[in-house]
Design a protein around this nucleic acid. Sequence first.
DNA 1: CTAGGTGCAAACAGTTTGCATACCC
DNA 2: GGGTATGCAAACTGTTTGCACCTAG
Lengths: 177, 177
Amino acid sequence: MATLPRLDIVAEQPNQTVDTSAEDDRIESIMKAFHKRLQEEGLKSTKQRDVIVETFFRLDKHITADELLEHVREDLPRIGYATVYRTLKLLVDQNFALPKDFGDGQTRYDPLHNQDPQHDHIICVDCREIVEFTDSVIDERLEALADDHQYSIRRKELELYAECMRTNCPNRPESDE
Amino acid sequence: MATLPRLDIVAEQPNQTVDTSAEDDRIESIMKAFHKRLQEEGLKSTKQRDVIVETFFRLDKHITADELLEHVREDLPRIGYATVYRTLKLLVDQNFALPKDFGDGQTRYDPLHNQDPQHDHIICVDCREIVEFTDSVIDERLEALADDHQYSIRRKELELYAECMRTNCPNRPESDE
DNA sequence: CTAGGTGCAAACAGTTTGCATACCC
DNA sequence: GGGTATGCAAACTGTTTGCACCTAG
């Protein structure tokens, strides 16, 4: 295999410690954008929405409605599924989140940081760890292919289901399976 | 945009008339492989399974359990969802079908013709027409990327959601939307 | 004040499962 | 004959909706 052009790794280190103030800035700017959008749409800003949205972006992972609800309940114990689902739909409609189906029966929501190019995923079939990547070679080729077929791309979905190389990857079926 | 290397279009003409005897041969060889697999696994061959599998491969499209049931009912009016779902799961387990989620809330099943390379899809967001394609440039690049990340690909999922260029494409939201 | 948002419970859609009966090997 | 498959209905899961009450603008 020849050496490849540089890879643009978008996010490869989950659970990493992050500079707290930088993180706060990030969240603040997202919340500001969110409130602006609400206003533009004539929608209301509520405590629930704020907590849900902030939690969603603070956790910053491919989360399910279920998981999100659980986290939000720490702040708002009386919140129900309906509000979480409705807020997630709002985020999707307003392009703050992208729903993804990785084939395990529940929708996951991918936080969209502003104008992030759409990224793709490698998902370990055993441990379910998800790595994000983008690659311009792929993207350009896809554009060209769509063009050839007379289609104009709105969005793409590209996932590689693969085995990670970690020797201690859990759930890996062994030879004795 | 420069001219591209040849595209391998796998299936672009739905509803096309096909040579009947060649079609019968194809089905026959699939059924033979299916029966062989059943035997290898110590599973039973039944009327229902045969009709479901034959219908599935004869229709040869990204079908939902619902649609398949409806077609099978023409031959077996008393068949229920359970049998269809169980047979589809059997086909998936035995690698005769691949479940796909195109984001409309129900699983579609993609018939796997023997060793077909895994193909990708372009889906019109308006008329939902699905075009299949494969492209070696993409595939090789993905292999290299996975390698770079220390992953070994088991399968991929690549879908382009796009607008087709048909002027009469139904469901297209017009400017007056 | 009032349109829009929330919480709860009930409804829903797609899929799976338990069980008695029917059938293949 | 014995274990597997089927058909039916009931259960289950993830998600949506109806409605009375609440709250931001």
